[in-house]
Design a protein around this nucleic acid. Structure first.
Length: 304
DNA sequence: AGCCAGGCTTGGT
DNA sequence: ACCAAGCATGGC
């Protein structure tokens, strides 16, 4: 039962590194030529190979539907690219990183992570989420041996970072609901702690049904998520896009706002409201995908 | 409407 | 080395 299992997913135009490091997910780490992470309670290693992705799990699994759901390799990616507006900024953004994809995450992990994300930079979100998993997550069987819970959330300096892959599942709503605000604050999430605690209680108690949201239309689903403390328009849109696959969701953070301002309204300053209205119609049915390209382009290549 | 909420990173000295 | 400013979102 402790052996590994392996699968090859044939897919083109899939840049694993860009995708796993683009601020959608916060637990993936690059180890040499592969990426280590946890999906659906499974420890998994992913590697980019010429015509696809190679995946390994420890211990072995028999079914891979959970991984296909997460990676979405069967998406008609070219159709998505073709749906983008044919203008210079979009062409540049796509050329800068063709193969950047949207993942399909588990709703609770995505919601909880993005509640912790407000006014944080990606490095800090990673730290918070990792501490949360170490403190509250169930250990994941890993290379045949049981995981050991480290005493300190931060690296002590003894263990080289490369030797400490993700060993804990993302904690369930029930587990977080049973925590105290003070315990959550130990994960350095500051004022987001009461919001996370509230969300965990709403979900664990059934008042917020994350599965029901799948069947709602975009506007209803968005309003439902925004009932939660600490979830405004931006975080709701992130969850709708990254966990539920609402491709029309277009999260506007300061990076995207700057991208829209600089790339599409460079001649005169546009109000935030005007930028949102523009974005809501201009980018088409896969606006969320377009947003991810603009976001990545602004953060990596485009400087002025 | 404008300020506040942590903590880490960046920039200036 | 130090301290200030910046980051970036939602609630009141």
């Amino acid at each position: 039962m402790t052996a590994a299992s392996e699968i090859f997913l044939p897919v083109r135009d899939y840049d694993l590194a860009a995708t796993l490091d683009s601020g959608q997910v916060f637990r993936w780490r690059q180890v040499e030529n592969s990426w280590h992470g946890v999906v659906g309670g499974n420890f998994v290693k992913l590697a980019q190979i010429p015509d696809g992705i190679r995946a390994e799990t420890f211990p072995a699994v028999e079914k891979w539907d959970w991984l296909r759901e997460f990676l979405q390799p069967e998406l008609d990616f070219v159709a998505v690219l073709n749906s983008f507006p044919d203008d210079e900024p979009m062409r540049n953004a796509v050329a800068a990183c063709r193969g950047l994809r949207l993942l399909r995450q588990e709703p609770w992990e995505c919601l909880a992570s993005f509640i912790c994300s407000s006014t944080k930079q990606i490095v800090q979100i990673r730290q918070i989420v990792e501490m949360l998993c170490q403190k509250f997550g169930d250990p994941i069987e890993h290379r045949g041996g049981p995981a050991e819970r480290r005493k300190q959330p931060r690296d002590s300096g003894f263990l080289p970072k490369a030797a400490t892959p993700a060993l804990f599942a993302f904690p369930s709503p029930q587990k977080i609901a049973a925590a105290t605000e003070a315990e959550l604050r130990e994960c350095k999430m500051g004022f987001r702690a009461p919001s996370l605690l509230n969300a965990a209680r709403e979900v664990a108690g059934g008042c917020c049904d994350l599965e029901k949201i799948r069947k709602m239309d975009y506007a209803t689903a968005r309003a439902e998520l925004m009932k939660l403390r600490g979830v405004g328009e931006k975080i709701a849109d992130c969850v709708l896009l990254f966990a539920y696959g609402f491709d029309g969701a277009f999260p506007v953070d300061v990076w995207v706002e700057r991208a829209l301002q600089n790339l599409y309204f460079s001649r005169r300053r546009a109000s935030e409201k005007r930028l949102r209205k523009f974005a809501a119609t201009y980018f088409g049915p896969h606006a969320g995908y377009a947003q991810q390209y603009l976001f990545h382009y602004m953060r990596t290549k485009h400087h002025d």
